[in-house]
Design a protein around this nucleic acid. Structure first.
Lengths: 227, 227
DNA sequence: ACCTGAACACCGTTCAAGT
DNA sequence: ACCTGAACACCGTTCAAGT
């Protein structure tokens, strides 16, 4: 009967599993950003004492590894009915879509020191695309270095303008740029005409990502044909 | 006289300046890694109470901005006596050398949300190389997106194998790879023959960086000539 | 044997009390 | 008016005491 009361009190006291821990963590990070994801807050969201998490995850690093695995799991498998270039291109764009759904994911991926089996499997199939596509071992290796994190669908932007967008401060920066950074000013002022503001997120990130991706894929293809 | 004792006790009690704070912080990070750089430890290294730092730096974020500025300050200025391609190539390689001297720097740069004036000036002169080299505004913009952080001399490696290098665990991973990740195995086992171990840091990072850089510069040059 | 509250050893930063 | 010790509100994680 005390059991009954407990059950009612905690409603359907779902047992804590690694999967539920990870799912809740992804949710928390999606909602409040990765910096708001602490072991303590995660425990609270799961209605559990912090120490209970350590049954399913050795430490926070392992939790972060798990989050990356969840995101990689959302990437479509590689097509097997086309050439290497199309298959790689489409898969990378699928990876990019997964990362856009979880804006914290690329930063967490950067911070990992050792690849998980899931990440290794992803890499292995990517390399497989090249090898079965006729690339030599050497060229494959160079290509991997060239693509870097782009293989996982992201690239290092120069500055992550997550834009707190204080319009006053922005206008001021704008003014300063014209004088002291003429070339930056020139670019920004002409590029972002399509958007509402003169400054702001005036460029098409998707286009720019594909531009760089294709420049690399084309360059890589040329090297392959030459060898 | 009590003054005299104090002076002797603290020896040449150098006054705290922003520059001395930054220099010590760079030193600390160089020596013990960026994760060992806390406001408290920095204060201790300067033989000062933690709060004293806040006179020279508004918060830790500003300290990190300052560190990035120090590193950018070590990059050679752009040559003015060559074509855009050579000037850009050499400057990026100079930036890379600066980053190699401070292994924590690229990670700190990634974490900055807003560029400092020093970073903006660097970017402005980089863009200037392209513009005076005959690039259209549009192409210049695309190039910036393509190069991304490479402009600052670094690229996202797939995994930062800072190698704790537990040889036993490494051998085990090696064994697992052959079976479950055949393509990764194939690459690693053939590439790193030049080095001592079969695994290990068997590839020439400098070569790989330049390979990718040149692939991009060549692709960019081709686009420019076409337009 | 299992579970967990309290504690530890840290953070960055605030603020009021001291000089 | 300046300086700073103590305190605050957090962390991730250990561990011994409780059941």
């Amino acid at each position: 009967m005390s059991t009954e009361i407990e059950e009612t009190g905690a409603l359907a006291r779902v047992p804590l599993t690694r999967e539920r821990v990870l799912r809740t963590a992804v949710d928390l990070a999606d909602r409040g950003g990765i910096e708001s994801l602490s072991m303590r807050k995660l425990a609270q969201a799961l209605d559990v004492v912090p120490m209970a998490l350590y049954r399913h995850v050795a430490h926070k690093e392992e939790l972060l590894d798990g989050l990356v695995d969840v995101v990689i799991g959302e990437i479509d498998p590689a097509r097997t009915d086309t050439d290497w270039k199309t298959a790689m291109r489409e898969r990378i764009l699928s990876a990019r879509r997964a990362l856009l759904r979880h804006p914290w994911a690329s930063r967490v991926m950067e911070s990992r020191t050792a690849p998980t089996p899931v990440a290794l499997a992803y890499m292995d199939s990517m390399i497989g695309l090249l090898r079965t596509g006729g690339f030599s071992l050497e060229l494959t290796h160079h290509v991997l270095h060239t693509m870097g994190s782009r293989t996982f669908g992201f690239a290092q932007e120069l500055f992550n303008d997550s834009g707190d967008s204080d319009p006053e401060a922005e206008a001021q920066m704008w003014e300063a740029m014209a004088g002291t950074y003429p070339y930056i000013y020139e670019i920004f002022s002409t590029i972002s005409h399509d958007d509402t503001s003169v400054v702001g997120a005036g460029c098409d990130d998707q286009f720019e990502f594909e531009f760089a991706l294709d420049l690399m894929l084309d360059g890589i293809e040329r090297l392959k044909d030459r060898s």
